[in-house]
Design a binder for these strands. Sequence first.
DNA 1: GCAAGGTC
Length: 741
Amino acid sequence: MKVLCVAEKNSIAKAVANHLGGGNVPARDVQGCRFVKNYDFEFNFPLWGNCQVTMTAVTGHLHSNDFPGNYRGWRNCDPVDLFDAPIEQYVSDDKKAIERNIERQAKYASYLFIWTDCDREGEHIGTEIRKAAWQGNARLKEPGKVVRARFSNIERTHILNAARNPVMLDEAQADAVASRIELDLRIGASFTRNLSLFAQPILRERGFGDEKQIVSYGSCQFPTLGFVVERYFRVRNFVPEDFWTIRIMHEKDNIRTNFIWARRHLFDRMSVVILFERCLVARTARVTKVQTKPTSKWKPLPLTTVELQKCGSRFLRLSSDRVMQVAEQLYQKGWISYPRTETDQFDKVMNLQPLVQKQTQGGPWAAFAQGLVNGGFSQPRNGRNNDKAHPPIHPVNFVNPSALTNEEQRVHEFVVRRFLACCSEDAKGSKTEVSIAYGSEAFNASGLMVLERNYLDVYPYDKWTSSQQLPEFTESEVFEPAEAKIHGGQTSPPSYLTEPELIGLMDANGIGTDATMAEHIAKIKERSYVVARPRGRQPRQEGEEGSDDGASPERASNSGRGGRGRGRGRGRGRGGRGAANASSNNNNNNNASSSGATSGVQEFIPTTLGMALIEGYDNMGFEISLAKPFLRKEMELRMKAICEGKKTKQEVVQESIDQYRSVYLQSQRRLDALRNVSCVCLDRSSEMLTCERPFGNTSSLKSFQRHDSLIWPNNILLAFQNCKINTKNYCMGSTQSRNHH
DNA sequence: GCAAGGTC
């Protein structure tokens, strides 16, 4: 009896073949494909007995989808026709050899055993493999002849178990993917052609963009752009707000201690003055609490793709798509595990110690790794995510860094250090808190002493350092503060969206997958919807705060580029996907100096084109807004409904197509109106643009009255006549500051 | 020349 096994990629085929074949199974080249090999061995399946097995693979999806030839020319049809045009499924030329290989190997097979990843896309790829096998051997169409393996890692026992317990392909999941493919194609192609053919010329007439510029719409790239634009307007429309705080300083044992007001700050000066006077009247402060307790800074979670990309931007100064390219190379060369994973848990049965052992051979982390081998090892923490297909990213072999390119070295070093950090103990410290009552008010001071650095020694990307020691205070001690004063400050705007923040937002809102998020970001750059620049230059706000001294100012007021000091360190522990906020790190402790190496991080500014696209669609008043992330979520919910058997593929596709076609037709009507729009472009040579009456419609200037001068990123001002910028939507600054209470 | 999803 012969069994044909087919995996989603060669690395899985190889690993499975070696497990089932009991050792090093030789690889046979397949003519015409570089990345696919065939592996022959014998295996005893419980149901089928001892079988001749051929194990091979595809390279992701086998099929492509496109419209027939007469619809391919952009001017051959009205783009609206693409909502119901036929769609052809075919195997592209570069995959023909893979298809032929499956047909040929299936010829004498009694069973087809599919080993694609256990996710929705994997289920669909399974049906593509099945089709190829059926072309080669129609007997495989008989019931029970096609099965698939359920597996979530490539540990030997797990794989053996999967081989002995095959299940059926999940047709519903495959259908969900089929509808995703169809909708993305129809909606993407129709809107992209519409924008490029009809909107772009209007822009070009007014001097924006060149003839060949594609203006694209995609269900992922548009919300990605939307995040950048939303933040841009939040920064632009930010109105600084005055606040006041009370600062207490006391000097004891020659140590100056600054106490922070328990109320942080208030936005009403009179109230602060009254409270301050009560303090002065009381004259003395009394120590109400002195507490020293152990604290720790948790080691990082096992590395996912999203986290790798965020850290790449933050610590390695590499853009997310570059990090992925480099990680892919490291994976290809066999130094690190598969780089596209959502999993932040190591399977309990996975033996990590040998992997640590390998890192003792060299590199600046060798001694640390040796320490782990000698008893310092600690089982990694478990995150909340498990894609059931891949383990967290980790080094699988030792490589001498000098054998790598510079970029490879940086990414590889990060992966190794992260892994070793995961296998270490948390950092331990001792935290002292002193509280005082002064008049009616409470004030706090705290000090940190780091006792055991542990994982921090191998993971320089986290910072946790001792603060100055507090002098000895005792409970009920009474003293007269050396200094008490009111300090005024102003809230400052948030910064433009950085790449790690954008990735966090995409992740939280389900925009793209671990493998594609970086591509979507790269795409909106390529399409000139946004520009990326190193963070640092901050828009000037009128009357930005001038701190009167350097002593521990409020975070909300001290930074030209942060302004969200207290929002940091919320941690990865978001309640599943769906939170609209990006988290920045996963530490349980945010009172010490936070990660500092952010100077090289990129931030994104929308171009005029990017803003016009988002604002244009946002302001058309449709029941669905193409730029908002929940549209993608809705598609996700519909796919889920297919998976659960609540809806059919046809229902979902029809429903969505009708919805999008309606939006398409409405926007087409608006586009016609756009041709008559007045549009003013001032001083294209300088970055500074004075907006006098550029919108043709003065009411649309409302939200900009505070800032008569706007800096436009690419010297262009474009305005849609009907494009109102809604202050309510974007002026978030003051609300945010008040959240500090 | 369009999308997003796999993978190399």
